[in-house]
Amino acid sequence: MSEDVRHEWPLFEVFVRAKRGLNHVHVGSLRAADHQMAVQHARDLYTRRNEGVSIWVVRSDDVVASDPDDKAAYFEPSADKVYRHPTYYAIPDSVPHI
């Protein structure tokens, strides 16, 4: 095949579970031809030192994210709902275990 035909592999986001009992956490991205290769490359790239016991990969273009410009509209309403927090409620010190 000629040099100018380039087959760029798609981008995958990688999530690693560090140990049982913890969530998978996003660690970075990599390029791979398909999902199977993405998992193998993720093993070589992100878990060379016992960093994980399980890997997820997701095509980057399949990720749907909130818009940073909508941050205020999305997240600020929760700030004025102080009654959602336990410290909002005054309970006498004499009442145990609450």
Partner: peptide
Amino acid sequence: DADGAWVREAAAAHAEKQR
């Protein structure tokens, strides 16, 4: 980069075929 080109192309072709 040049030596690896055929490997990258073959892997992409394989992935396409599987799809």
